[in-house]
Design a binder for these strands. Structure first.
Lengths: 340, 340
DNA sequence: AACGTTATCGGGAACGTTGCCGATAGCGCA
DNA sequence: TGCGCTATCGGCAACGTTCCCGATAACGTT
């Protein structure tokens, strides 16, 4: 392998390791000629400082851990994209952990990250996670933590999220403006932060337009497979039937669309549909699907920037806060106003 | 932070560090009672061995580098999913690098991975990469390397790919069976391995059915934005017009579908369309799109398994080989046989 | 002439862990 | 009694790097 060390250089040039070390870092107390010699020789041998030795000495790894439910998911893969870009520019590398929506694996991943000595942690909570004491304890021990997307107000940490309330409010109002009155809301487990914020936005829009909130129109998914069909059936069985669906995720939006198609309901004639999503093929769906776009990449970028600030400035960094990144509503055919 | 070391335990228990070390690893030459004491104390203090110190000592990092063009891409995010799952079970962590389809960044990423002292490298080549001497040199220095998906026969390394030839052959034959004769092929840069294999499968299917290969029906994309529309236009301007499109990637398939829709061509009545893709929403597109499914996750899993074998058994591992994972053709509405 | 200063470099410890080599005591056996 | 063996443990070096403390010589200053 590659193994040229500072010792090799020292031996070859008949110098001590300390001199070589200082020459390489350009210390002022090394003779210019000596510096040149060392630099040239190091260059010629393609010397690269060993980051592991550095880590041991400085007690830091220049690595940040990223814990997400799933990589193979539009939102998270884009967020990781943003994270990676910033992190590498700042000299950190990114270690990925997946929880697969399991609380248990989240805890295990967290411990793994700790024993890997990551300098900081970026976390999007699993859907099973309601208790965050594991994170609070870690934070109390001094580990910099930033939450993104799936956050928890139980934790006094910086949190970076889409403006879920506003996004949901706009989506719901958009449906109302297009003439719908019975708007169903398909969402994810109720104890999750994003669920509550989106639900609140949904309710606020209904209220603003004088539509009573009907809890029978709200269904909570569990990330299980094949669960969307029955939920949609159940909602459609009501009388009067819902005339619009507002879904809270990529997965639910696609599943809902499939379920509606299977049941031969015309979109947007029979029901309208709008999702909270990042799918870049939403435009190509049948019909083109209206969406509230979450700025996944930007969320990742902002989150990692805050984390690095936390790592490098420690107690001097900005106090914990909640950062909301605006969403964008894109109206397409699935929510077109239908004139009778 | 967490910092309990083997020294702390030794001091507290009035033992030497070596004894503690051996007790922790269950060495036979340590008194059972002493072992118990050490184990219990370590447990109580939540001792975790410092992997950085281990890495320095053993000259290995228990990390594998994964270099891909893009994380935010169906295929690669699923592949990384598979990689992550296996790697963690085997005690390795995964460090992600993105080339963004740039040769230059690929080289830089490779160097970064090396200076991070990864134990092995998993690479899917950028579309710009035609020269692989940077990888060959690294390999010559003893770094275990496994290529996946975007591979190169210039490198004597284990390569894990989808069965591109067979997949393309089946897709083309499927189009022929559905009654098409002028089958256009939208693909990616010609020097890439997957391009050539898919093109060969396409040609072989044409030949088998007595259809002359027409190079005017083949177009090579460059991963640039908004390039698909003009390519499609150009193809459609021919006389006679193509009656089917076979695309070589997720991006091209979606772009082609959008372009055809924009030009008001009916699918499958006017033209058929089949893609090489992993999009799980292909069924929801308009119309539902036929696809050749690449087993992304399995490719990742197999690749990382081979890499770990290479890392741990070194010269004793299996010699380099090309492993082909079968694809699956899913016929949907976009290639339905149209009766005139 | 004695001293302080400056420029330039080396020695050694330390980060946390493991492994080699020894050291000690207790014991059995001839 | 003396020898060797086993069981049990400690000391030390090493991995690659940085940093603190000295060391040395060549000066200038009083």
């Amino acid at each position: 392998m590659d193994n040229v060390t500072i010792k090799d250089i020292a031996k070859a040039l008949n110098l001590s390791t300390s001199t070589v070390s200082r020459a390489l870092r350009g210390s002022y107390e090394i003779n210019a000629e000596t510096k040149r010699l060392v630099m040239e020789y190091a260059e010629r041998l393609n010397y690269r400082p060993n980051p592991i030795a550095l880590s041991l000495k400085e007690n830091r790894s220049r690595a940040i851990g990223v814990i997400v439910p799933q990589i193979a998911n539009y939102f998270f893969s884009q967020a990781i994209n943003g994270i990676e870009a910033i992190a590498y520019n700042r000299g950190y590398h990114v270690i990925i952990f997946q929880t697969h929506e399991s609380y248990e694996r989240e805890v295990v991943n967290m411990q793994q990250a700790v024993s890997r000595r990551v300098d900081g942690l970026l976390i999007s909570l699993s859907s099973e996670t309601s208790d965050v004491t594991h994170l609070r304890e870690l934070q109390d021990q001094g580990m910099p933590i930033v939450l993104f997307d799936r956050v928890s107000s139980e934790l006094n940490a910086t949190q970076v999220v889409a403006d879920n309330f506003k996004g949901a409010f706009e989506a719901t109002e958009h449906l109302i403006w297009s003439g719908r009155r019975r708007i169903a809301h398909l969402t994810i487990p109720p104890y999750m932060s994003i669920t509550q914020e989106r639900l609140a936005g949904y309710r606020a829009a209904l209220e603003k337009h004088g539509i009573a909130y009907d809890e029978n129109l709200v269904r909570y998914g569990t990330f299980g497979p094949d669960e969307v069909g029955p939920m949609v059936d159940d909602l459609l069985a009501q009388n009067p039937r819902p005339d619009a669906f507002f879904t809270a995720s990529d997965r639910l939006a696609a599943g809902c669309l499939g379920a509606l198609q299977k049941r031969k309901l015309r979109i947007p004639e029979d029901v309208a549909l709008i999702g909270f999503t990042n799918m870049n093929v939403a435009e190509l769906l049948s019909p083109p699907m209206s969406t509230v776009v979450q700025p996944a990449q930007e969320i990742g970028q902002v989150a990692v920037e805050r984390l690095i600030e936390l790592i490098e400035r420690k107690q001097k960094a900005a106090p914990p806060s909640v950062i909301k990144i605006p969403t964008t509503l894109i109206a397409r055919d699935s929510t077109r106003t239908v004139v009778e």
